[in-house]
Design a protein around this nucleic acid. Structure first.
Lengths: 269, 269
DNA sequence: CGTCACTTTGACCGATTTCAAGGCTGGTGG
DNA sequence: CCACCAGCCTTGAAATCGGTCAAAGTGACG
């Protein structure tokens, strides 16, 4: 599971122990126990409130349900798709976390996105038929797969599916990229604060804890995502901890002063 | 017109004179003389190769043509829409240039986009029904307006319109934001080089000159767009000029060594 | 127990920002 | 026609933030 790796470690830590890691990133009270099963359907999935099937009519949901696929969950480090693979489907994270990235000619890796349960990925390449990025599991992750040819057909018959898809595309533009956009001229501290508050909000909207969680990304990846280097990231975490705004121990984070963190980030439009 | 303001000024400049400013940012050889007229249609518009009506069938174009509006051209500084206005339509720049931006609680302005002839704007707010940004004419600008309710209906009947719209949304995500994304850890020089080569390519694809043009944005705006300050921008322009890569005089730019500029930018994925 | 990946910390350096001043340009009104 | 003003652009000097290089600590795993 998500926290497995850290619990043993945390027990050894003196002051930092007792973070309640065992509660981190676990879903609260699912309406029915489908989690863990590879055969799910949207009616019985706690994600439908956020995923592609959100706010579409009953009939539309049945349609989606008809062609949805559930590939086997991938372990940490395995790829859902790679740069230049054919674009064949859109995906929704069911559990775990996924990062997308690309590697340029110089061999440098750029993190382009991080996706949490209920969030849709795979849009890169929707227009050109080939993926621009690679998508990799950050933890053991299960997903729902929506074949694009099926999806495109459904959109023609069911306007609400089309509307929802368009809505998601727009969200992809604004909720994900715009925080980064407006982050360009901000300090390392502001960027990290923005990253953490954003992450917190997204976890909460999937029914997870807003103040205690594990970071899906390593320091290096967060740094890359925020346009900084590993060392700066580490120093910035340390500074926020010294100021009692967060407590961090490796991947686990407790936000102890969310208002302060939000005040630091302040870049909503 | 676009260059009117600068020509007189440039005549006074000694060494910098003779830039051919009168050729800047003017369309080359329009197929028919609709430019300047407020009543246009897509069949007779030189933009159809790039705008929303690109690569849709004959019948679809007639449909678009049926509900397209042409509001009066706005002068520099006037707004097409403002933050929080209701989202009612998508727009395509016909002539001139448009910037989108927002102002946060602290009163700081963030440039979110710059749109040239043939490019679509107004997507901000498509999902939430209210505009997140303001859109302002950078010069006297005319646009085509596609009412969204009409557009949405057309999409249902004409899959190629839907496909084109989706394509444009994806382009909005990737062609516009991703260069900036990968620009985060680059130097001021690389960022400016990327900005200029990108601008050059976009102007060219609308039939304008790739090497001689006027900057639609002020130094301050370019700086904001690239995550830098005005002074750094100015210094960077000076440095590129000293190295004979560009010649600049206020808003007018001549790229004298495009390969060198492209070599500096190198941040395609 | 050793290795490896990840993280933290320190010292130094350089690019960009900040602060400050001055120049240029276009518009306004006398 | 000229003086003045405001906005935009440029340049210089000093300060600061983040990057680079180097070293050491930590936990996971075989």
């Amino acid at each position: 599971m998500y926290t497995q790796a850290n619990t043993a470690a945390a027990a050894k830590v003196k002051i930092k122990a007792g973070f309640g890691l065992d509660k981190c990133n676990k879903l609260q009270e699912l309406p029915c126990s489908t989690r863990g099963s590879f055969k799910q359907n949207c009616n019985c999935c706690s994600m439908h409130i956020v995923c592609l099937a959100k706010s579409v009519g009953e009939e539309s949901r049945q349609v989606l349900n008809g062609f949805i696929q559930h590939p086997r969950p991938l372990r940490k480090g395995e790829h859902f798709y790679r740069q230049n693979d054919d674009f064949v489907a859109l995906y929704v994270v069911n559990s775990g976390a996924v990062k997308t990235y690309f590697i340029n000619q110089q061999g440098e890796e750029y993190i382009t996105g991080m996706y949490l349960p209920g969030e849709l990925f795979g849009v890169d390449g929707m227009d050109i038929g080939r993926h621009r990025y690679s998508a990799k599991a950050l933890d053991t992750s299960s997903i729902c797969e929506f074949g694009y040819s099926n999806l495109e057909q459904s959109c023609q018959s069911f306007p609400d599916i089309q509307r929802r898809l368009t809505e998601i595309l727009c969200a992809e533009i604004f909720q994900k990229q715009q925080p980064l956009l407006s982050m360009r001229q901000n300090s390392a501290e502001q960027r990290l604060a923005t990253f953490l508050t954003d992450l917190s909000a997204r976890l909460q909207s999937s029914g997870l804890s807003a103040t205690e969680f594990n970071l899906p990304l390593s320091r290096r990846d967060i740094a890359s995502y925020l346009g900084l280097v590993e060392e700066t990231m580490s120093r910035t975490f340390s500074r926020l901890q010294k100021r009692q705004i967060v407590r961090v121990s490796s991947r686990s984070v407790i936000i102890t002063d969310l208002p302060a963190l939000q005040a630091l980030s302040m870049n909503r439009c």
